[in-house]
Design a protein around this nucleic acid. Structure first.
Lengths: 243, 243
DNA sequence: CGAATAGTGTCTGTTAGACAATATCGA
DNA sequence: TCGATATTGTCTAACAGACACTATTCG
């Protein structure tokens, strides 16, 4: 660390794995690259740190990219740092270190393509991983999904996919889709009612057929860790599948 | 991402949170900085990526720094990426992004100071966190310890602190020290014998008084995740304290 | 022998998971 | 009414935690 200037200069980007549920399917936001390298291929949205010194932290860059891409306000999503990626020659233009972020939210509308994207769209996880993405974005996407899967087990992160008020069955559908399993509705209900807070007033949103569900929201007062998530009790094991 | 060269150049370092047990105390490796900034203060060991293109991946840098600092061979330690840190002006010389790594191992000997360090020594966690470290290294160290604590709960990572063969009580002492709790020896025994593999031959290493303990090692064949750790069964809860 | 540590047995309260039963809606 | 979904009840096997007990060493 004696003389920093003797070491090679890097570019630093923040790339985003933005996941949401659309029609009960787990989807990821991808852009189509407008420029080389990987022109025309799909990639995770992202961009370089500190356009004109606007970013003061790594998170600023991630939040800015998130806003540009989805038009969503930061407080509506869960955002956490995922992992950092670099291998020699990973980007042919110059050495680029990418700090990947995981963003989860109830994002409804269509996406807006930023400056460097020809278009931006939602893709199901299977469709996205079934093709070659730009750079090492296949790996980043896999890591992001794995992180989300793991966090369902010991946090209330599933609720970040849902609007502010939701039914327990909505939470269950998130688990079922993200884990790819079927869960027993009865047992799930019991476990989760303790995790969330019942909304008393609120007319029961009456969507489909069947008995209307009570609405819940995330508990505000409980202990949250640095990531803003509430730990859920001992284990919600991935093996807890019905049948 | 249109023109990478318009963005500011960053230096990239790998800094290490190297934890080990010495005299049943959790200790961290710190260096005393030889040069400005923070000259004379304690800091996590680390260094810039790719001195003369020697590093082809981020992990290469971490492994190289680890070897230089501890003289330890990579296969003897558990190494995982922790988190990446940057805020504007974090390093007064130039903008530096630091990829922090967590290294856990049964590191016995003294430390060798690298080129940029006046000296390198082991410090207990309390001593290290009780003073002002260079840069944002207090935060990085706290994050590293928290990661280690969390991983004890659902992996066999405790064994990475120990030599290849160990007694169950050794594992228990790791949990007790890292979590700062007392665990019931009997119940701990039962849970952990399933996690590890008994070494049949191996004369019972006879250290202190009392009945000599059977030796165990980590299971080689079981499923290991990408980090090389074996998941341990449902929950080893932090609350599982005795008394 | 007694002190110390390793390891096993046993009991009890809790809980996960299976599955049945009830509640409340739309058609 | 039926079909669908929400919610609660019940049972059982497993298990965590408390704690007593046995095993094996050293001094």
């Amino acid at each position: 660390m004696t003389d920093a200037t003797q070491y090679p200069p890097f570019g630093v980007t923040a790339d985003l794995v933005i996941l949401t549920m659309r029609n009960d399917e787990l989807c990821v936001a991808l852009i189509e690259r407008r420029a080389e390298p990987y022109k025309g291929q799909l990639a995770l949205p992202g961009g370089f740190v500190s356009r004109h010194g606007a970013d003061r932290t790594l998170e600023d860059t991630a939040l800015r990219e998130l806003r540009e891409e989805t038009g969503i306000e930061p407080h509506e999503v869960h955002l956490e740092q995922l992992k950092t990626y670099w291998t020699l020659g990973r980007d042919p233009r110059q050495e680029v270190v990418t700090v990947a972020w995981l963003a989860l939210g109830p994002i409804q509308g269509e996406l807006q393509s930023g400056s460097d994207a020809a278009r931006a769209d939602w893709h199901t996880i299977d469709a996205a991983l079934g093709q070659r993405l730009a750079f090492d974005h296949n790996q980043i996407l896999r890591d992001g999904i794995e992180r989300a899967r793991a966090k369902l087990e010991y946090t209330d992160v599933a609720a970040t996919f849902l609007p502010r008020q939701f039914a327990i069955a909505d939470v269950r559908r998130v688990y079922e889709e993200v884990w790819g399993v079927e869960l027993d509705p009865g047992n799930f209900q019991r476990k989760m009612t303790g995790v969330f807070e019942r909304v008393q007033d609120a007319e029961p949103r009456n969507v489909g057929r069947g008995r209307p569900a009570a609405l819940y929201m995330r508990k505000a007062r409980e202990y949250r860790d640095a990531s803003g998530l509430v730990p859920i009790e001992p284990p919600f094991r991935r093996m807890d599948a019905a049948r």
